[in-house]
Amino acid sequence: MCSLFGLIDFKGCLSTHTKNKILNTLARECQVRGTDATGIAYNFNDRLRIYKRPIPARKMKIHIPHGVNVVMGHTHMTTQGNAQFNQNNHPFLGHVDGNSFALAHNGVLWNDKDLRMDENLPQTSVESGQGQLHLVCRRK
């Protein structure tokens, strides 16, 4: 199954170099739970940034800009859909009431087609049940 990792520099006392080193180490250690894709999300200049690629963490260089103090990360093991289509990988981008958010999770939603019908959810390009969970969360 996938893995979640992250960093919160609550007091802003770590250098950008140290944060990048920690994030790359965490990602590499987490890839044991998924090598199909790696991604991170963070806010920078009042914008949500998501960087994800269909590659294992050991091949991805994570580099956050100066001033970023909170980062969410994910390593992905594909259970549904094709990881080569980057829209299937985490973190997912969502929008609610004009605000953006990022979502990553560790799990599989097998009843996504039923939820789509029962909840009248919009269509998406995401091929996997993981993406359908994203849509359910957006709605709440």
Rank of each mutant, 00 (worst) to 15 (best):
H76S: 05
T78H: 00
N120G: 03
D46T: 05
D46H: 11
N86A: 12
D46I: 02
P91M: 08
N99R: 11
H90Q: 12
L109T: 04
M117E: 15
E119K: 12
A102D: 02
G81M: 05
Y51V: 07
H66K: 14
L103Q: 03
K113R: 15
L93V: 07
V70K: 11
T78D: 02
A102P: 01
I64C: 10
G73V: 00
M60R: 08
P54N: 07
A83T: 02
V70W: 03
F101E: 04
V108L: 06
T78G: 02
G107Y: 07
G73C: 05
Q123N: 14
F101P: 00
L109P: 00
G107Q: 03
L109V: 13
N99V: 03
K52L: 07
T75E: 07
Q84N: 11
F85K: 15
G107H: 03
R58W: 10
Q80P: 00
N82E: 08
I55Q: 13
D112A: 09
N111M: 04
D97A: 10
V71E: 02
G73M: 04
Q123S: 14
M60D: 13
G67T: 04
R116G: 11
N120F: 15
Q87A: 14
P56I: 08
L103C: 00
F85D: 15
I50P: 03
H95T: 13
G94F: 09
R47M: 08
A104R: 00
P91L: 07
R58K: 12
Y51A: 03
Q123G: 15
H95M: 05
G98K: 05
N89T: 15
L93K: 14
P56Q: 11
A102H: 01
D112H: 12
G81K: 06
M72Y: 06
L115D: 13
M72W: 04
Q84F: 03
G73W: 06
D112F: 09
A104F: 00
Y51I: 09
I50H: 04
M60E: 13
A83I: 00
K113D: 07
V108D: 08
L109G: 01
R53V: 15
K113H: 14
V108W: 00
G98M: 11
H95C: 10
W110G: 10
V68E: 12
V108G: 03
N69H: 15
W110C: 07
P91N: 07
G81H: 05
T75Q: 05
L109C: 02
N89P: 06
D112L: 02
V96C: 09
M72F: 08
W110I: 09
R53D: 10
D112C: 04
G81R: 06
H66S: 13
V70S: 09
T79Y: 00
N106C: 02
K59Y: 09
P56E: 11
T79N: 00
D97T: 02
R47D: 15
V70G: 04
V96F: 10
N111S: 08
G98T: 06
G94V: 06
A104Y: 00
I55K: 14
M77L: 12
V108A: 10
F85W: 11
E119H: 12
K113T: 10
I62D: 04
G73N: 05
G67H: 09
V96Q: 13
N86G: 01
H74E: 02
G107C: 03
L115E: 12
N120C: 14
M77V: 02
H105K: 00
M72H: 10
R53C: 12
Q123I: 08
F85M: 14
L103W: 05
M72V: 10
V68R: 13
L121K: 11
E119V: 06
P65N: 08
